[in-house]
Design a protein around this nucleic acid. Structure first.
Lengths: 144, 144
DNA sequence: CACTTCAGTTGTACTATACAACCAAATGGG
DNA sequence: CCCATTTGGTTGTATAGTACAACTGAAGTG
């Protein structure tokens, strides 16, 4: 096998291994906020509110899935729905204060976990690794 | 925020985004073999057979989960159980010919997907990216 | 030989997810 | 202006993956 093919295989294998473990690991670290909930909240914070449909489109989830996730987050008091004056069908989703608080806390603890894990890496390697991940994800967002 | 912290945030965000999408993407590509089944089969091929308990330990899965996954793979005719002459409790799992065939086929198609996605990358970047992923996964396998 | 450990299965429950059917609001062409 | 279509969202139903706990049977150990 060529070097190139070996690298491709390694990348495939290691990304797969990571994907397999990530959800469970996130759940162990934060039983109160699944990986999906976390990303939805983070997106709401980022966008300063958006519609359920936007979340579904962005994360390639079915609208029913988003509907139920949002319902759960609302039940937990982390998200609130506001009417859109221009379109009565639309609910604009926003983080509540509590939602912001929980999200910040979970984000901080995740950040700490990453910091520990990557403590030995020098800045050059971190920068390159971050760059590669961005590049990888930006290439076929539609595929995986 | 320091550069270092920014890189850490990017890595966190991009790995999270990847993890969120990977399962669904794998399922779309191969409805007949989920990401989990695929990794279990690959492990069996790699190890030339092993016990259910080994799979559970290696992938941090509950033994009941593995038991059901294996049952499914056996039902599909991809895996067979052999008695361990030295220990009547143990079932040594092996790929069947059909299992090898299906695994090779799926692996090839996954490889093609990765090749397409990474077609523009030069070999140096591939090698570095592969190295970083290995290093990342090798640091806290127990965490995530 | 009795107690404990180990491999694996089964019962039960929960989460994430999809697809399809549905409802209500908005929009656009006759 | 009205009805057909589109759009945003919910609900019913089904499936997969997972965990935990209770259990069975075999192996090891005092």
């Amino acid at each position: 096998m060529s070097h190139r093919a070996e690298h491709l295989d390694t990348i495939q294998r290691e990304l797969t291994a990571f994907a397999r473990r990530a959800r469970a690991a996130a759940a162990r670290l934060h039983p109160e906020l699944s990986l999906v909930s976390y990303t939805l909240l983070a997106h709401l914070q980022d966008q300063r509110g958006c519609r359920a449909t936007d979340l579904a489109a962005h994360y390639l989830l079915d609208k029913s899935t988003v509907s139920r996730q949002v319902a759960g987050l609302e039940r937990l008091g982390l998200v609130e729905r506001r009417a859109d004056p221009d379109d009565q069908r639309v609910q604009v989703l926003h983080l509540t204060d509590r939602g912001t608080e929980v999200l910040d806390q979970v984000a901080a603890s995740r950040r700490t976990a990453f910091e520990n894990r990557l403590a030995e890496w020098d800045e050059t390697d971190l920068a390159r690794f971050a760059g590669y991940l961005l590049r990888y994800n930006a290439s076929g967002a539609e595929q995986d």
